[in-house]
Design a protein around this nucleic acid. Structure first.
Length: 644
RNA sequence: GGCCCCGUAGCUCAGUGGAUAGAGCGGCGGUUUCCUAAACCGUGCGCGCAGGUUCGAUUCCUGCCGGGGCUACCA
């Protein structure tokens, strides 16, 4: 591990990060002001399509042709003249290319000095160097992720959720946000009840050495199958759920204990991927502390929910469709079943109200199983103080797969009906698509593929899954052959799996394939970490002589691209934070690693550079790359090893 | 039926209202007296279809086609 890896992440020093693109946008803006162009005209500046055009180009003149009723080329010429007169820093020359692009050619010396300086700042950033942007003033963002049902081992679908949530939290923290991460434990739901029924009724024994979560997975599959042949068993499930809802009985204690042991297994699994939480929130505590009762009263008083007297929903409390029109029963959500038990969505509404501090109630909090950095909610006042820094968020991000879009809309609707419009608007369902198995992966698992389909959905209930721990173990095994040591293989393997699950767009279904997930070449986490190790290797061999850096007047094309990529980091980070989309950052990081590999292969070896000034400059370029890549890797939740 | 997502190269996927749409994998052919070859280089006429908006659309809008999901007194 790099020493940088152990340093706590601190926000970017945004005030000194004026990147070249921003300077150019401002310069073009000023020039257009002088030409009488309205301030509402959006100035676009982007990387030039081809190197011979320059470094940065703006199509502003194209869009202005119609507005100014002049030829684009003429506008571009005038714009260029104005820009030349303004003597924009870092720009060596302005050119125009048909049909009217204005191109900036950078002054390599001043531009490079600025980029290397920023990257050095990146490395030197201290924790007291707080950003001054609006993001930090926005208050706390609460991120809920993982929330795996506590009844089975975590599989790659759960791991995708956790990697997305953990990375989003890291990106937000890196860009100056205050973040609280919750992991919600649904310990009063059907799934955990199923396992309890199975343990009690099926007589399945835990094998010697078998992890508890894997044992429960077996029980879960078995009991699910048994329901088909023995529907009477479903009555057992109902009984368990009833007793859990009532609490204070032997079954409730047993369920809680099963959940506790599974949660520990999940925490251990996620820990292997460097995923951690601030707070475990238990559904049973939401019930036990009367959160739902309170939420129910609020909803009833504001008439957001109504009691159904007749029809197929007779005896239920429901939230009617938006706008109380005649959309039909389609959009009517049952919150309290006719047997008096609240649905999952109902409890989620209470939880969401708590997240914003709108419930007027709070949990009690205690450390989780002696863990000093992880807290858990509690319903028992004698165990802890009720005053806490948890909850009371200004923004809530729920990382939940796309299949739950509807219930998430219901939660938002509930906030609106309670006249919490701002909180409803700040309730973000960070939706992502599921992980499915390719035919090849299904075949490897011995799972039949349905006629006419090209993928198989994961199903813990049916045992169609790839366990997160198993995937990591396979990745470790794959990497151990080439790794320096076992610890190195573990770190790289975890990063590789994380990268694989993060690089897809959120609304893209991951077609999971073993060969693809375990590959160690090409667009993989291994490639990024290898690039970092190469850079670190150079820095080990070429020491910093402490003298000031002289940038050559002309750059090698590979150096130029590398500098552009380094400079783009700040923007990649802020855009990732804005879009809440980790794949933007993986794409960026791969681009940076590629640019460095290109530099490495196509320019002379830095360690053999004879000229001291040149060696100093090129070392600084490598150092800037390493610092930037390490920062990106850590923000993605990956290690930045100095050697692999 | 209604709502949501997807459709880009053989495969898996990026990408953007702007100039000649990219990467990885697979295939074929190369690179190692040189900082780690987990690397690099060469080899590719592909934005589902049809309209519309625009100076400019793969990107925005509408319709259609194909695939997936949601629409439970499950979570």
């Amino acid at each position: 591990m790099s020493p940088v890896g152990t340093r706590p992440r601190s926000p970017l020093p945004l005030r000194d990060m004026a990147d070249t693109r921003t300077l150019l946008v401002e310069a073009v803006r000023r020039a257009l002001d002088g030409m009488g162009v309205d301030a509402s005209f959006e100035v676009v500046v982007e990387r030039s399509a081809r190197p011979e055009f320059g470094d940065w180009s703006s199509p502003a003149a194209l869009g202005l042709a119609r507005i100014l009723r002049r030829a684009p080329a003429a506008i571009a010429a005038e714009l260029t003249e104005s820009l030349e007169a303004a003597r924009v820093s870092r720009v060596r020359a302005w050119t125009v290319t048909p049909p009217g692009y204005v191109n900036a050619h950078l002054d390599d010396r001043t531009w490079t000095e600025a980029v290397l300086g920023s990257a050095t700042d990146l490395e030197a950033t201290g924790s007291d160097d707080l950003p001054k942007d609006a993001a930090a003033a926005a208050g706390k963002t609460l991120v809920e992720h993982t929330a795996t049902n506590p009844n089975k081992a975590a599989h790659i679908g759960h791991l995708r959720n956790a990697c997305i949530g953990d990375t989003v939290a890291r990106v937000l923290r890196r860009t100056g946000h205050t973040v609280e991460v919750n992991n919600y434990i649904d310990d009063t739901g059907v799934q955990v009840a199923d396992v309890v029924v199975g343990i009690r009724e099926l007589g399945i024994e835990q094998q010697p050495g078998e992890p508890f979560d894997q044992y429960c997975s077996r029980v879960y599959i078995a009991v699910s199958a048994r329901y088909q042949s023995d529907p009477a068993l479903l009555e057992q499930r109902r009984a368990v759920l009833r007793e859990v809802e009532e609490g204070g009985n032997e079954t409730a204690v047993f369920v809680k204990d099963v959940a506790r042991r599974i949660v520990n297994a999940h925490l251990a699994t996620m820990r292997r991927f460097d995923i951690a939480y601030d707070l475990l929130t238990w559904e049973s505590d939401i019930i036990g502390l009367g959160f739902w009762r309170q939420a129910f009263e609020l909803l009833r008083e504001s008439e957001a929910i109504v009691f159904v007297e007749s029809g197929k929903l007779a005896g239920c409390w429901v939230m009617p469709a938006e706008g109380n029109d005649d959309e039909g029963d389609d959009d009517t959500k049952v919150l309290v079943k006719s047997d008096g038990i609240a649905t999952y969505t109902a409890k989620d509404i209470a939880y969401q109200l708590w997240k914003f501090g709108l419930l007027g109630r709070d949990f009690f909090y205690v450390p989780w199983e002696g863990n000093p950095t992880l807290m858990t909610t509690s319903a028992l006042p004698q165990q802890g103080a009720s005053t806490s820094h948890f909850g009371h968020a200004q923004r809530v991000i729920n990382v939940i797969d796309a299949r739950q879009a509807y219930p998430q809309r219901v939660v938002q609707r509930a906030l609106r009906r309670l006249h919490h419009k701002r909180e409803a608007d700040n309730s973000i369902h960070l939706s992502y698509e599921v992980v499915a198995l390719t035919p090849a992966a299904a075949a490897e698992l011995g799972v039949a593929i349905e006629e006419g389909r090209d993928s198989v959905a994961l199903s813990g209930r049916r045992g169609i899954e790839v366990r997160a721990d198993d995937l990591l173990d396979r990745a470790i095994a794959r990497l151990t052959a080439n790794a320096r040591d076992a610890a190195g293989a573990t770190v790289v393997a975890a990063g590789a799996v994380r990268y694989y699950l993060l690089k897809f767009s959120l609304n893209q279904i991951i077609a999971f394939d073993f060969d693809e997930a375990l590959r160690v070449t090409g667009d993989t986490g291994v490639y990024l970490q290898y690039a970092h190790a190469r850079a670190a290797g150079i820095l080990r061999k070429v020491s910093d002589d402490g003298q000031s850096i002289e940038v050559p007047s002309e750059l090698h094309p590979a150096e130029r691209e590398l500098l552009h990529s380094i400079e783009a980091y700040s923007r990649a980070l802020t855009e990732t934070a804005l879009a809440l989309s980790p794949s933007l950052l993986t794409t960026y990081a791969f681009g940076l690693a590629s640019a460095f590999s290109d530099f490495y292969e196509h320019t002379p070896a830095v360690v053999r550079e004879e000229d001291a000034a040149m060696r100093r400059y090129r070392r600084a370029l490598v150092a800037a790359t390493r610092a930037t890549l390490a920062d990106a890797l850590h923000t993605l939740g990956m290690a930045a090893p100095d050697q692999v």
